[in-house]
Design a protein around this nucleic acid. Structure first.
Lengths: 124, 124
DNA sequence: GACAACTTTCTACGTACTGTAGAAGTACTA
DNA sequence: TAGTACTTCTACAGTACGTAGAAAGTTGTC
């Protein structure tokens, strides 16, 4: 699949937070706020074209869809964040010829609460 | 952590296959064979300096260690492939604010045999 | 229907990472 | 010490990403 840059990741995070599709301008505003929130010094706002470029790239990567019908195009994530993350994990795991050994190590590190959840999910 | 390029990945795979440390020249030979094995047309062998560059980069990334004592330096992976893969998976999961939801989706996709393994690993 | 305001597309540049390897430097062996 | 084997330095091309101006397209309104 695709690896995301910092800005791409930030855009995806915002799209994931918003269930409904939003515009590039809205995203730009949200991104500016985000940066302001941090300690990052001068939160110079991004140009809208920058956001649009990133959105185009994300669209090409299949992570984002745009509604061309509405005039300011509206963008939304194709999959949920959880699905995306799970897919990434599977992708990482998939390339391993020793899946069970990997799973063993993986399981060894999740919190006990999560282990409990896993037990339930696995049934019996 | 670090993302690996194709050649870097191929080198790591070879280092993981060999429990003992090996030299850049050996690696170069193995890499050449690998390429020949594939359908890839002309298996032009890599220059040793190419392999050495890649090894240096992997060393910088903390994935490889070299024994400078032995004259042709010998290289070996710092962690096992399984540990590395498990770490990558955790890294992907770690960035999620909805870990349990991700785990649920993840679990839904492993094979039944693996699910059985997981059950055992989770105890009780 | 023409203009102004807004939106999207095209093009571009700097930086970082990766594949690739020659040139130059270092060390070991006979 | 000279030759060979190995390592380090330097470099370049391709791609990905952050960034955005210039140009082109759209739409509402007078």
């Amino acid at each position: 699949m695709a690896t995301l840059g910092d800005l791409e990741r930030a855009v995806m995070d915002l799209l994931w937070e918003h269930q409904e599709a939003i515009t590039a301008n809205t995203l730009r505003d949200l991104l500016t706020q985000r940066t302001t929130g941090d300690d990052t010094v001068a939160a110079r706002p991004l140009a809208v074209t920058t956001v649009l470029t990133v959105l185009s790239r994300l669209e090409k990567k299949g992570l984002v869809e745009r509604e061309r019908s509405s005039r300011p195009h509206r963008y939304h994530a194709v999959t949920s964040r959880e699905d995306h993350t799970a897919e990434l994990m599977l992708e990482v795991l998939g390339s391993a010829p020793d899946r069970e050994a990997v799973l063993a190590r993986f399981i060894g590190t999740v919190s006990s609460g999560e282990a409990e959840t896993l037990r339930k999910l696995l049934g019996r």
